[in-house]
Design a protein around this nucleic acid. Structure first.
Length: 657
RNA sequence: GGCUGGGUAGCUCAGGUGGUUAGAGCGAGGGUCUCAUAAUCCCUAGGUCGGCGGUUCGAGUCCGCCUUCAGCCA
């Protein structure tokens, strides 16, 4: 039986709109899956959606539909995207699947029976505005912002998972099997969390149920409770596992959710799989280790410049931006530019430069010139290399090494390094062509054997490249494969069977451009057009409609004095996450106004903008500054604020009504 | 505040255990070839290797302090 490879992505929250982060994780998983299939392994590739929780419940209620209807409606945002991108996930799990619910309930009950889950009272600080419990750190932050009044201490009955029981085994897992979580600096963070400074007894038990939510999986035997997020979500990897594939070989996660995957998740599994007589304070049994995921791989984030992406800054990169030049181009870029584990800033220009340099000028041009010479000088029939000088020998040597080195780097999860290495080789081949000058050899009968050698080596190198990059760029690799006169599907090739010097089967085809060079300036111009006041287009995900407030009469409304204002200066308020301090010209006077829009707008982009101001609002002091008014912005509870913008020719001081 | 990890050419980054003129890719400038997708190839970057001090015959490379950025602290 061949080796098995079970790879997962996190399940994505259905309410989110897919962005480059989701795309990156899932593409990465797809590349791994394809790569391991070409290694001859049996692969099971799982992704899906997380569909429970309060947000879904609320949004659905506001729209007058059931949470399930809402989930059904938005789930395709993900599933269809992956289909459109040609991803090869073997299954798409939803936490609303009956199978999943059954497994969660069954496991919950099991752990209830073993005493790993118990009922108690949950106490914590609850943020009224966020409708969620907050952490100590978050609470402190709110207090420094003067928002302490939003916090209330709340108590509710909850089921707890005895996380503390597994501290010893967890620490052993990290110490003895450091490849359990990668990269190593992320594992360190996990260790610090479980045992800060090596201290024991820091793990607190985990609340895994809620009575305040109804949209979720009922706790077996106590349906006032619903299973809370992580015990529900993480178990998808178990509930949707295909027979015979357990445990997961590689689980991809963003760095933000590593902790849940590297602490809670193995602890849940330890609790489920442990047997009588196994000492929780002794050695971690090898039997248990073998039932836990082999590796959790945490990747970094795509940033815009220094910043995280945010919806209303208009700097969020959507899958379609990435797919603008084709699926394969996007895939290549994601894999080549992101070093796994590290953050990376995205720029559209960098994206295009990478594609031009590597795909058009690099591989595309090399294939084009090689194939064209094979056609022109040898009628498309690939000759056999017979005569080798030092340069040819070196090229052959490099050629034989390219696949082993590439595969070794890929084995270490380093596709960026592998592609980098392969492209260095392609550059080297361009140099080889210039040194060998096949166009001169062709003119001299005495040099025909030498010309054969050069053409043959180029052919072999391209064939190796087509196979190696097939998991990353399946379409482009197939096209190259066919141009080289090879039959069948390149993805059906097996790395182990590959031989650099294998003979060529058939005449090569006409060279077709593998990747069309991008005219950067034209594209940038096109993209610049539609960006106006609204930073991004309307979200595709359903808006969360807040319930209407009670009616008021006209007189009440007319007491509000709304004015057009022009932002003259703007600066971020130090130590505040949200506030920006602005000087606003109201025509008849100038005001200082503070607005909580820092997450959505930078001070620079505010200057010169016209906004709408509530001009007769009593002044209020925020973070030590007096705000003499309030600005108007639109949002739902999911989105960043969108500033309300008067038309360009409205003058400061105009009344808005 | 505690614990990590960074600050190296315009940009993105390499630089095991200290040792001659600090490297790569991209971008930019100049030149070349003509098989090729105005592609290739060659040359060109005068970088106080964040700052100060120390150890050493000799330090991006070790030590201390400072500064700054990022991550984790349920």
């Amino acid at each position: 039986m061949s080796k098995r490879f079970y790879i997962t992505t996190p399940i994505y929250y259905v309410n989110d709109k897919p962005h480059i982060g989701h795309t990156y994780t899932t593409v990465l998983a797809d590349v791994f899956a394809r790569h391991h299939r070409m290694m001859g392994e049996e692969v099971y590739f799982l992704t899906g959606t997380d569909e429970h929780g309060q947000k879904i419940e609320k949004t659905a209620a506001a729209r007058g539909i059931t949470p399930q209807q809402l989930a059904d409606e938005v789930m395709p945002n993900f599933e269809n995207l992956w289909k459109r991108m040609g991803l090869t996930n073997d299954h798409f799990v939803r936490t609303t699947h009956a199978q999943h619910k059954a497994v969660v309930q069954e496991r919950f009950k099991q752990l209830l029976d073993t005493g790993d889950i118990y009922k108690a009272t949950y106490k914590g600080l609850y943020s009224v505005s966020d409708e969620a419990y907050v952490t100590e750190t978050q609470a402190k932050e709110l207090q420094t912002q003067g928002l302490a009044h939003q916090l209330v201490e709340l108590e509710e009955e909850s089921y707890f998972f005895k996380l503390s029981t597994y501290e010893h085994w967890l620490i052993q897992l990290y110490e003895k099997y450091p490849d359990f979580a990668l990269p190593d600096f992320r594992l360190n963070e996990v260790k610090q969390f479980v045992a800060p400074g090596g201290a024991r007894g820091n793990l607190q038990d985990l609340s895994i149920s809620r009575t305040s939510i109804t949209w979720g999986i009922p706790v077996p035997g106590d349906d006032r409770h619903v299973v809370y997020v992580w015990f529900d979500a993480l178990l998808n990897y178990l509930s949707a596992c295909r027979e015979g594939f357990w445990p997961p070989t590689l689980q991809l996660v963003g760095k933000d959710i590593l902790r849940f995957h590297a602490v809670y998740w193995p602890a849940f599994l330890m609790a489920m799989f442990r047997q009588e007589g196994e000492d929780l304070n002794g050695e971690l049994p090898a039997r248990i280790r073998a039932l836990l995921p082999k590796t959790i791989l945490a990747h970094g984030w795509w940033l815009m410049g220094e910043d995280k992406m945010s919806k209303s800054k208009g700097n969020i990169v959507r899958p379609d931006d990435l797919l603008r030049f084709g699926n394969d181009a996007g895939r290549y870029f994601l894999l080549r530019d992101m070093q796994i584990g590290h953050d990376r800033s995205f720029s559209f220009e960098g994206f295009m430069e990478r594609l031009n340099a590597d795909l058009a000028n690099g591989l595309g041009n090399l294939a084009s010139r090689s194939l064209s010479m094979l056609q022109r000088y040898r009628g498309g029939v690939v000759p056999v290399a017979v005569l080798f000088d030092d340069l040819d020998r070196e090229v052959a040597e490099q050629g034989r090494k390219i696949a082993p080195v590439y595969l070794a780097l890929a084995e270490k999860h380093d596709f960026s390094g592998a592609l980098d290495h392969l492209w260095a080789y392609l550059r080297y081949l361009d140099g080889y062509i210039v040194k060998a000058e096949p166009w001169k050899l062709a003119k001299d009968d005495a040099n025909q054997a030498k010309l054969d050698t050069v053409l043959c080596q180029l052919y072999r190198s391209l064939r190796a490249t087509a196979i190696l990059v097939a998991p990353v760029m399946p379409e482009l690799a197939q096209q190259l494969w066919e141009s080289l006169g090879m039959a069948g599907k390149v993805v059906e090739q097996r790395f182990a069977d590959f031989q650099y010097e294998a003979s060529a089967p058939g005449p090569v085809g006409e060279p077709k451009p593998l990747f069309q060079r991008i005219d950067k300036e034209t594209v940038m111009k096109e993209m610049a057009e539609p960006t106006l006041a609204a930073p991004t287009a309307v979200a595709e995900t359903p808006v969360e409609y807040a319930p209407l407030k009670e009616n008021i009469d006209y007189d009440t409304f007319s007491k509000t004095d709304l004015r057009v204002g022009l932002v003259i200066t703007a600066e971020a308020v130090p130590k505040s996450k949200k506030l920006i301090k602005m000087t606003v010209d109201l025509g008849f006077e100038t005001r200082t106004i503070l607005g909580g829009i820092k997450e959505a707008y930078t001070p620079e982009e505010l200057v010169g903008r016209k906004i709408v101001v509530v001009a007769n609002l009593a002044p209020r002091t925020l973070m030590g500054f007096e705000s003499q008014g309030m600005l108007l912005a639109a949002s739902d509870s999911n989105s960043m604020p969108y500033l309300i913008a008067p038309p360009a020719d409205a003058k400061p001081g105009f009344i808005v009504k």
